[in-house]
Simulated assay, not measured.
Amino acid sequence: MSESVLVTGGSGFVAGYVVRELLGRGHRVRATLRNLRRGEAVRRKLGVEGDLSFVAADLLSDDGWDAATEGMTYVVHTASPMPVGEHRGQDITTPARAGTRRVLQAARRAGVRRVVLTSSTAAAIPAEPEAPADEQTWSDLPDQPRYVYPRAKTLAEQDAWRIVRGWPDGPELTTVLPANIQGPALDEDLSPSVTLIRLMLTGKMPALPHMGYSIVDVRDLAVLHAEAMTAPAAAGQRFIAAGEFLWFHEMAAILRDRLGPDAAKVSLRRLPNWVVRAAAPFNAELNQVVPSLGVRSRLSSAHAERTFGWRTRPAADSVLDTAKSLLSLGLA
């Protein structure tokens, strides 16, 4: 059944695949952009047919959100800044929290049935390293620069649950918590997770920190968003989206083993933990990875599997498809 869906952050990596999935299911999709001049470029990037339109809205402004949510049955809120690229060194907590509140409030005024919020497994870090984590787990981290991203995602999601609990007449809320997101890049505007594979392919990661991630494929993540949007059983639920864990050296080995000459610049050298810790005070991005050194996350997606029969594809396939897309785009 065709219904109307607003997807925030329409030019983003996750949003692009969510838009594709929703259009493929016959929904009418409206996507927010900070600059409407990007609309045609986004449409070409997605290469989709169907009822897709764009509206201007910004997480830091009230303008545009009522127009964006008007007539929508659902909202999928993927937009949130990360402390890299244009937001490097900036406050990301304020726009993450304020943007979430704006979207929810506009959704309520518009009579939206359900909001699906893209959170992160960074909001489900257990107190003990390597302890199992599921939807009952919440991150509780100190207010320090190295924890800026997980704190922003945690506080924004907690705000969302607190807000909707005060609205018994809706909208409903469902949150999806992806792990490290891999999968084919759509253009040169790369997400930080995809940039990791690019750094390896281009030789700009000459030594590999002893860290890793649980992987979710962006194509499967889009499916989970679509299921969480409409399934009655998903209302009021959190869903972790995570598959196999890979260390950086395992990702590098996959690239070297399966790409042949195209992975000639991929390094297999290990970077000792003490070197990362010594350099961290002088490098903001290294400082943020220190808590992950040597930690193998144990994230469970059993809730999504039980509810929807959902699971993500093998992590090696996602990493390889990411690399192949970068090569085909001339980005590696």
Rank of each mutant, 00 (worst) to 15 (best):
V295F: 08
G39A: 15
D143H: 11
V223C: 06
A152Y: 01
A107M: 13
E130N: 13
Q182K: 07
A67H: 11
G111M: 12
G64F: 05
A98Q: 15
V7S: 01
F308A: 07
D189V: 09
G26A: 05
A263Y: 05
R38T: 10
A41K: 07
E135Y: 11
R88V: 13
S267W: 04
L320P: 09
L286N: 06
R298D: 12
Y74G: 09
V18P: 00
R113Y: 11
L6N: 01
V103W: 01
T322E: 12
A279K: 04
A122C: 15
V42T: 06
K45S: 13
Q182S: 11
V218W: 00
A235K: 10
G243E: 02
R306D: 15
P168K: 06
P95G: 11
M200H: 02
G50V: 08
R256E: 07
L141Q: 12
G243P: 03
T195D: 13
T154R: 09
A252Q: 03
A264N: 05
A315Q: 03
D51R: 00
R114S: 14
S297D: 14
E40S: 03
R37C: 00
E21T: 07
W138M: 11
R109Q: 14
G99L: 10
L329G: 13
E227W: 02
A222V: 00
A280H: 02
K45D: 12
P314V: 12
L190I: 12
E128D: 14
R113E: 15
A228M: 04
Q237M: 08
R88K: 14
A233V: 15
S191Y: 04
P206G: 01
G183L: 04
P81D: 07
L286T: 08
R25Y: 00
P126M: 08
D134Y: 09
Q158T: 14
A233P: 06
E3K: 08
A98R: 14
L177D: 02
N180F: 15
A96K: 05
E227G: 01
W161R: 10
R43L: 03
L331Q: 09
F282N: 08
R97H: 07
V84G: 00
S301N: 06
L117D: 09
A68S: 10
F13K: 00
T100N: 10
W274N: 07
A302P: 09
A304Y: 07
A278I: 06
H77Q: 10
R219T: 03
T174W: 02
S139E: 11
R37D: 14
R151G: 05
F245M: 11
D262W: 05
Q144A: 15
L6R: 01
G64L: 06
D63A: 15
L259A: 05
K204W: 05
T73K: 15
K153N: 14
G260F: 05
D169H: 10
R296T: 14
A252P: 09
F245N: 10
Q105K: 12
A131P: 14
P184Y: 00
V176A: 04
A156L: 09
R313F: 11
E40K: 00
Y149L: 11
A56H: 02
T93G: 14
I163D: 10
L173I: 08
I240Y: 01
G24Y: 00
W274I: 13
